[in-house]
Design a protein around this nucleic acid. Structure first.
Lengths: 345, 345
DNA sequence: CACGTCGATGTAATCGATTCCACGAGGAGG
DNA sequence: CCTCCTCGTGGAATCGATTACATCGACGTG
């Protein structure tokens, strides 16, 4: 592969001049510039990003460590992150933690070794020392969706509190009184927050949230199935199950289906995270939608601000309830546009 | 950030010795080794992968350019690729082409600039000169799922021919005679191959595939909706629509639903690519399943073979038909295990 | 005892870029 | 006409690693 030296030789100038042309530094004669450009063209030269990074100490790369690529919510997040990053001149390297802390740390370490300019993390657990140290050491970092409390890092996330309240109102209005939740890992902020919001909203109606109605899941489908089976085996099973993410809702659906029961007649179901498939499930699932695309973009902007020396800001956006048929009684009007355009947020 | 020089100073040895310890070269005294290791520990030193790559001309990184991250098929592929790569000591950088050739080229160029050790591509179009040139120039490369004809690059893919024949047999057995297909872009191998296989299989029953029953899609949901509406507007609409990928099937479902029609009563539906959501749609969708995980792993193995100087082999694995209810008449026995374990292929 | 071998170590070149500094030519100003 | 500044350019240092080569002491062998 041709290097800058080859270009310099071909153009009859020094490597310094070639470099100046490439980085369009002002003081290069028009003549030299055209000769260099011709040489670049002739040799099919492309600058070696590795060498450039070593010298400049910037890789123009962002690391994104997400909890689970197979989760459509995170896939969509990754997509919007990459899009915004590209618009700002950065590449993105994605690491999939698969909800496993040690895998998360593996990716963080690898990304740090590659000297990425900044890190976007949605922490799988509540306190990876590696991440905390990196943050303290000054690595530009932004938390997205989930965060680690007590660390001075901007957080970009959706606040589901109001939407959860709307959901509970909706459920209460449908006559449901025994409401259960499939929670995420307590070690994640989203895991515990959603339970709290749910409990609080129930409280407003004087409905308790007994321990038996709090199932411990791990944000993956299998745990949703297991927890739901537990609920169904209870002497007094809940009338509604609220899954704290979309995959656990899928597992819940599996469990109900395996017993030959029906949603919402035998058990109503709602989920946090709205994904396009929820429109097509049997029945369509009522869910709390996060502004995923906007979150991804805001996170990138905050991170790039941090990298380029501006002060990054935390961002909290509202989530909203999308009512469908999985909790009973169809909504007043059918959903207007079944295919959502993928470029919208 | 501490460099190898700092470690050398701290340990009281030369950088060469530090480097030898780090790469466990045999001729280092036990004493020096422990001192270096202690210094590494004390300083929290981590080798700079950028510098290392520049010197050794290897990045231990694979590039993966896929057509669409939002497509669960490719997400699963990406996941298995990363897993196998990690097991073999490589990282993966994913580029999302979003079915746009220029975006695909952008990512290929960026990856090449970063001097990745090898490239895994599922080409969005039939003949990016950039990719062809890179292959000819000797960049280790493997095509996965789709390929570019006429280029000397191993291909790892699933052969759906037999499964399509099974599907047609199934449809014919249910009494369907007017069968249409939503095709992928003709520029992709999978796009044209699936139409051919379908036409061939129909031929065995003496059923023609008129042009009106070949809708041109682009592997994205919106095109599936558009094409399906076209089909429904025909004077003699088809009884079955076969979508060449899962997203177009989703779009087809949208179109049917928007008209207040029902699957399979008004229009039967089948899809290429089986994804877990198909079990939960209304109705569950009959699909052709590819051994996605195995494809990803095989592709990585072939690529790493190529990188490390062994001869890579092309791999073709069979796809298989999974019958559900979207073409009419439920299958003989219900699906045995509703939740599929995510670690299986 | 001399010499060759081997193991441990350090010095320095190298990878491919960027960038500081020095230098020469040419133009402006006194 | 001399000085000074500016502009275009090249030489060389530098980033942080790896590695060929040189060196040196210890040891084994004839």
């Amino acid at each position: 592969m041709a290097s800058i030296k080859d270009v310099a030789a071909e153009a009859g100038v020094s490597v310094a001049t070639v470099s100046r042309v490439l980085n369009d530094h002002p003081s290069v004669s028009a003549d030299a510039r055209t000769r260099v450009l011709a040489a670049v063209e002739a040799l099919g030269y492309r600058p070696n990003a590795v060498a450039r990074s070593l010298r400049t100490d910037q890789t123009h790369t962002l690391g994104l460590v997400i909890s689970d690529v197979m989760n459509p919510y995170f896939t969509e997040l990754a997509r919007s992150v990459e899009e915004e990053a590209r618009a700002l001149g950065y590449s993105v390297i994605i690491g999939n933690a698969d909800e496993r802390p040690e895998l998360q740390d593996h990716h963080v370490r690898t990304l740090l070794d590659r000297r990425i300019d900044g890190l976007l993390v949605s922490p799988t657990d509540g306190g990876s020392p590696l991440i905390v140290d990196a943050a303290r050491a000054g690595t530009p970092m932004v938390f997205v969706d989930r965060w680690i409390p007590g660390v001075e890092v901007p957080v970009v996330r959706a606040d589901g509190r109001a939407a959860v309240r709307d959901l509970v109102a909706h459920l209460h209005g449908l006559g449901h009184r025994r409401l259960a939740i499939i929670a995420g890992p307590a070690a994640t902020t989203t895991g515990s927050e959603r339970v709290e919001a749910f409990r609080e909203a129930l409280g407003e109606y004087g409905i308790p949230l007994p321990d038996a109605y709090i199932g411990q899941g791990d944000f993956q489908a299998e745990s949703g199935r297991r927890v739901t089976e537990g609920f169904l085996d209870l002497p007094e099973p809940p009338e509604v199950v609220f899954a704290a993410d979309n995959l656990m809702a899928l597992g819940a659906l599996d469990a109900v289906r395996a017993r030959g029961l029906r949603v919402p007649d035998d058990l109503a179901l709602a989920a946090f995270d709205d994904i396009r498939w929820f429109v097509h499930t049997d029945p369509p699932i009522t869910a709390i939608a996060q502004p995923t695309g906007e979150l991804g973009r805001a996170a990138v902007r905050a991170l790039v601000d941090s990298i380029e020396g501006r002060t990054p800001r935390s961002v909290t956006l509202p989530a909203r309830l999308v009512v469908r048929r999985s909790c009973g009684e169809p909504p007043a009007s059918p959903e207007p546009a079944p295919v959502r355009n993928r470029s919208q947020s």
